[in-house]
């Protein structure tokens, strides 16, 4: 077992939603070595090698694992915090145990900036994707609430360059891209 214990050291109002809280817990051991392994098995994880952090987006909530601390946002109460901390510690310890079976992944998968995507979209607001504007489409796309293939215009021949750029951004961020588009 790598992490033996944790201690909640801070319960703060969550900046995103003041009704909820953000919790910071100190963990007994340095877990930085395990982060690339969790990154390899959880495709939603956002690993930042330079900062040595791994963020796990779970529904609305973000769990960020640092070498010696775990920060969790949008929590109802301390009880919920403890439950999620226990789960996170379990994930760390189990991944640590299976380290030899996993190939570590040091790549950073970060949610792409929707403005970067928006700039590359046709900006015709054609509504074929079901959204009112290309702006709204871009915002949903980066949140993985809509897939790129819903934009039919970008797959027209005139947008080849932009299409390739978008696919590259999405792929680089760990988004699932239909095989025939890769």
């Amino acid at each position: 077992m790598l992490v033996k214990s944790y201690k909640i050291i801070e319960i703060l109002p969550c900046l995103v939603d003041p009704e909820k809280t953000r919790v910071i817990a100190m963990i007994s051991e340095d877990v930085s070595g395990v982060l690339p392994y969790i990154n390899a098995i959880d495709k939603n994880a956002i690993y930042t090698k330079n900062a040595n952090t791994l963020t796990l987006p779970k529904s609305e909530r973000l769990i960020t694992i640092h070498p010696r601390k775990i920060a969790i946002t949008k929590l109802k109460d301390e009880q919920e915090a403890k439950k999620i901390l226990d789960e996170t510690i379990k994930l760390i310890n189990e991944t640590f145990k299976k380290k030899s079976e996993i190939k570590p992944d040091y790549e950073r998968r970060k949610r792409p900036n929707f403005l970067d995507i928006y700039k590359l979209l046709p900006k015709t607001n054609c509504r074929k994707c079901g959204e009112l504007t290309c702006f709204a489409f871009a915002a949903k796309l980066v949140k993985e609430e809509i897939v790129i293939t819903r934009c039919s215009s970008i797959f027209e021949s005139g947008y080849k360059n932009n299409r390739e750029k978008i696919l590259k951004i999405l792929q680089g961020s760990g988004f699932e891209i239909p095989v025939d588009l890769k």
Partner: peptide, 12 residues
């Protein structure tokens, strides 16, 4: 040393 940790512990 994680600054957020140190700040929290100092604040206590």
């Amino acid at each position: 040393i994680d600054s957020e940790l140190l700040i929290s512990l100092l604040s206590q």
